[in-house]
Amino acid sequence: MTALTLVAAVLAVATLGAALMALTTRSTAIAVLSAGLVSLFASVLFLLLAAPDVAMTEAAIGSGLTTFLFFFVLGRIRREGSK
């Protein structure tokens, strides 16, 4: 039981670091990647909190689909701006 608590503490620190990096970096693409990393770590934390269904949804939607949407819109904006 204590091992899982230790892993959760490490994951919490890593999530906070990723969130701080998403707020302080200058490039928008790196901010989107860091937000995906926050979602990834939060999903593993959901698994430790005995919620595997939430972890599954967060992994599919938060880490995969949201990153996809952000980069899709960023690509459209870049193509529109260079035209």
């Binding site: 901010a31 989107v32 959901f46 938060g62 952000f70």
Partner: peptide
Amino acid sequence: IIRMIVSFTIASTGVNV
């Protein structure tokens, strides 16, 4: 505006946690 939406995503994850 894109950075504001990224921040909103992080806050939404926090509410879920």
